[in-house]
Amino acid sequence: MERPTIYSLAEQLRISPSTVSRAFSDPGKVRRELREQILLAAEKAGYYPHNAARALSTGRSGLVGVLMPDVTNPFFPQLLSGLIKAARRREAELLFIDSAEASQSETRLVARVQGQVDAFIFASPRSPVEDLVSAIGNKPVTCINRIVEGVSSTYVDDDDAILGAVAHLRMLGHERVALVGGPSNSWTAQRRAAAALSAASSLGIELVHLGSFPASFDGGLQSAPAVVRSRATAVLAFDDVSAFGVVSGLAAMGLHVPGDVSVVGCDDVPFASMMTPQLTTITAPVRQVAEAAVDLLYRLIQHGVAEAGTVIPFRSAFVVRGTTSARPA
C-alpha cells in the first residue's frame, strides 16, 4: 500500500494539494470546517508531514524553542501542553528549555540551541528580553506574559480579576490584606503587585506587601511567619503554588484557612480545585494564550517584521471557592 500524500488527500477530498498543505503549515488560511475535514482524512489515511523533507526544501527544521522558568510549577505544564498541540497543527515540534528560575542562565541556554530551531517562544522569561533576542540572532520570537516594544506577545491581564478578589475580601470584612509577592525579576509578579496595590487603594483596604518570594510551595511556606506578623486576616498570593505553601505554613503555626486567615491564589492550576478546602483563585485561559502565541509566531515566520510588535491580551476571572470567608471576630 502506497504511503498517503497531500496529492492523494487532495484527490480524495476534491480540493487542491496547496490547500491540503496549508491546512498543516498555515491553518489560519484554511476555513475551519475544511481544515477539520482535511485533518480527519489525514488521520484515517495515516498521513503525517515529513519534516525532514520540508527541512531540505525550505531550510526549516520544524523545531520551535520554548524557554520556561520552572516546569515544576503546575502552571507551565498546562501552557506547554497547549503550545505542543498548537505547534503540531502547524507541523512543528517543540524543543523545551527549563531555566530553573536562573535568569543568568537563560541567555546562555537559548544561544546553545538557536542553531537547531526555526524560532523561539519565551514564556515568562526572567532575563531582559532584549538580551535573549540578541542571543538568538535574527530568529522570529514571541513572548508570553511579557510585553517588550517591537516583540510580538500575548499575556494574561489580571487587573480586573485582582480588583474582584480584593472587592470580595472587602465584602467579607477584611481590612488588612497581606500580599505575598512573586520573584522580583518576574514581569507578571510586578504587574500583579501593582494591580493589588491599586485595587486596595481604591477600595480602602490596607495592603501589606510582604516582599518577593520564590514562585513555589517553599516560597509560600517562607512567607507564613511574615503573614502572621503582619496581623493580616487575608492573603493574596502571587500564584496558586505559593498559596498552597501559605496554607500549609499557617497550619503548621496553628492557624486555619479560612477560619483564621483567608487565602487567594492565582492561575487556577489543576490542584487548586483538588485541595481541601478548594482554593479561591484567579483563572486564566491558558490554552487560548498558547494558541495565540504560536499563531503570532507563525505570522512572523511567514510575514516577517510586518507582524512584529503585535500584543494580544487575555482576561482572567476571579473564582470564589473554599479558602475565603468572613473576617474572624
Rank of each mutant, 00 (worst) to 15 (best):
R88L: 03
I97A: 14
Q37Y: 08
G62N: 07
G46L: 05
S103A: 14
A100P: 01
I84K: 05
A102E: 09
S81F: 10
F75Y: 15
P74F: 02
N51V: 11
S81H: 14
A102M: 11
A86N: 04
T72W: 03
S61R: 04
A92I: 07
A41G: 11
A42D: 07
Y47H: 02
N73T: 03
T72M: 11
P49A: 11
Q78H: 10
A45H: 01
E101F: 00
D98H: 01
S57G: 04
E36N: 11
A87N: 08
A42R: 05
A42N: 11
E43G: 05
A55Y: 08
P74S: 03
Y48Q: 12
R89C: 10
G46V: 00
G59M: 03
Q78C: 11
L95E: 01
L83A: 01
E43N: 14
D70A: 15
R54E: 15
A100Y: 12
V66T: 02
P69T: 14
I84Q: 08
P74D: 02
L95T: 13
I97V: 13
A53E: 04
F76E: 06
R89A: 07
Q104G: 05
T58Y: 12
G59H: 01
Q37C: 12
M68R: 06
I97Y: 03
Y48K: 08
F96W: 01
A52Q: 12
P77Y: 03
R88H: 02
G82A: 08
L39G: 13
Q78F: 00
K44M: 02
Q78A: 10
K85T: 12
L63M: 01
P69L: 12
K85Q: 12
P77M: 03
A100S: 08
A52E: 13
Y47R: 07
Q104P: 01
L83I: 05
A92H: 15
F76P: 02
F75W: 12
E93K: 03
E93T: 14
L56N: 06
F76D: 13
A45G: 11
A100I: 00
K44F: 06
R89K: 14
Y47A: 02
S103I: 01
L34E: 15
K44S: 07
R35A: 13
R54V: 13
H50F: 06
L63Y: 00
L94P: 10
P74L: 07
L34N: 14
L56K: 02
A42Q: 07
E91F: 13
F96I: 13
K85A: 07
G46K: 00
R90D: 06
N51P: 06
